[in-house]
Design a protein around this nucleic acid. Structure first.
Lengths: 331, 331
DNA sequence: CTGTTAGCGCTTTCAC
DNA sequence: GTGAAAGCGCTAACAG
């Protein structure tokens, strides 16, 4: 069942079928004709061929998100969900493809479909970029890195780190540490959050944060944590990469007979249910990605219609949630 | 730059270009011609049009995964990652699209591209199914539900529940409870795991498990947990929906001055790092989705080439991990 | 081994 | 308000 079939049944030309079904602007249709076309389409169970349409018109209506090769969850997952929704309401279809590894071949993806816009959430190589440009595919970047394209993110991971540090510094802490996971796929976020913590320490004229890379599968955690808490440069406050790391630290502390915030204050990121339920309740930083999805969807629309990227308005979507795992330092 | 341009530069016909670039079987090419075509393609930076190819040949090489509208994480996320890899090595491109809500319009997706195969991981309506059939799109189901299509999953969530129950029953427990989250999107898994627990209880001739639906955002957790642990039908062992729920229970217990496994044994699912690091270390059930991805990829290949679905061979990918949060019941 | 011809299903001028 | 003609870029069938 092609549009020609519909035309035949409705007793009109293919052109008219196209006009009706696409609700073409600057083109009025006689109500009767309109009805006839709709009825015929319904009767035949007609669905247009996306490929033919894309081939002819040059636009597929597809936004393809390139995801990094690590488990998508939590806030990120929610963001994708919201983005799907936002784009769908703007008439675009959001699909995602997960990168496999650094030198994996995205070429096979560009060879399978031509999106209108690629939303780069992982890294694109310069050869990917030129392949996309050659096909006239727009690129919007959100996290990840693509040479020559600005990051469209409003939420700044740097700011997340700043907010973590603020919680502790405001309570009078002067020697902080930053604890991050060893897995490389957290690196991107980790680097930026740590930089925020460090910047805030500098602004407060306290020493740079000490950095601990935790291999959470090993038993070495107790040891490295002890090292952090003793000696001349012992820290009194810890910014953990996220709530999970924070809880891991709190668990380890319990084993060392240490308790937060008396022995050391700990602040996470994510505002997880588990952290909220914990004893002591975990202080954390929450960032809302709802507005973010709307913002990214708008950027995508701009690029899709050939306009320049819009300014990223600052929002106050980063919220400090102070609970019982942080408090004034002992000394 | 179209294939015609390449043909012109290489001094051959479009047909020949197609033969060379697609490495067509049953068709030999003179080495010199081959070289000329490759060189011309390279020189022009030629990339074929996926839409034109799909339109003409009727196959897009795309497998589209339809994801349910809930946060993808943990084992599921890893499975997707593995599947991307598996399919890519078989020359197919795996893309995903997240459903927005029950009556959302997947029609817009079928209107944006025509995959060779749809992998249904969320629910498809019968109108979706007929739209896909009409276009000749194959359907493979893995979790989620689609009328008329068998589930291709090897890993049985039922079996996961059975394994949880086995851990406790083997240790001598006779009165079990099952604790599941309130959020509806866990329901699908939850129902099946609970059924497994119940079946194993029946087999062991002990009472049906009591069921507790925990609203983990409310403060009611302590109350409902207490209710479970006291009275004539007090339970001695709890199967939690997953590790996170299990840890939430353990945290709550601590607040009630209860300790596992003395007061009650708790077993989770997922083998999370946090659970392993916990005090007491959490007993759990792990299921490996590596083989699963390979299996699903094979099913997809079968359907794509018109062969029937293969048998799902049983694997022993579900492993009980017994740690300190479970032990012999007190009485 | 290579080329000619035809047409996948649709949309876009342009003419009426 | 409607239709005829052309062609998007590719590949399948058939000749040679």
């Amino acid at each position: 069942m092609t549009s020609a079939d519909v035309a035949r049944v409705a007793g009109v030309s293919r052109t008219t079928v196209s006009f009706v079904l696409n609700d073409t602007k600057n083109q009025s249709i006689a109500p009767a004709t309109r009805r006839a076309v709709f009825d015929a389409a319904e009767e035949l169970g007609y669905t247009p061929s996306p490929e033919a349409r894309a081939l002819r018109s040059g636009r597929s209506g597809i936004v393809l998100g390139i995801l990094p090769d690590w488990p998508i969850g939590g806030a990120f997952g929610m963001f994708l969900s919201n983005l799907t929704h936002e784009l769908s309401s703007k008439g675009m279809t959001f699909l995602t493809h997960q990168i496999q590894d650094a030198d994996a071949d995205l070429a096979s993806v560009w060879g399978a479909l031509t999106p209108d816009i690629v939303l780069a959430m992982g890294d694109l190589t310069s050869s990917d970029v030129s392949a996309l440009r050659a096909r006239g595919v727009g690129i919007v970047r959100w996290l990840g890195s693509v040479e020559g394209y600005p990051d469209s993110a409003v939420i700044s991971q740097h700011e997340v780190g700043v907010t973590q540090a603020r919680i502790l510094l405001d309570q009078g802490h002067k020697r902080l540490a930053y604890v991050q996971p060893a897995e490389s796929y957290y690196q991107w976020f980790s680097d930026r959050r740590l930089a925020g913590v460090a910047a805030e320490c500098a602004a407060a004229r306290v020493p740079r944060p000490r950095v601990m890379v935790g291999d959470f599968k090993a038993d070495s955690l107790e040891e490295s944590l002890s090292a952090l808490l003793h000696g001349p440069s012992a820290v009194t406050g810890i910014c953990a990469y996220n709530d999970e790391v924070a809880l891991l630290l709190l668990t380890t502390m319990r084993r060392l007979n240490l308790v937060a915030p008396t022995d050391v204050s700990v602040v996470g990121v994510d505002n997880s249910e588990l952290g909220a339920a914990w004893e002591p309740a975990l202080s954390t930083v929450e960032f809302a990605l709802t507005d973010e999805a709307e913002h990214v969807a708008n950027q995508i629309r701009r690029v899709a219609s050939g306009r320049p990227l819009g300014r990223s308005k600052k929002t106050d979507a980063i919220i400090a949630i102070v609970r019982d795992s942080t408090g004034a330092p002992r000394n």
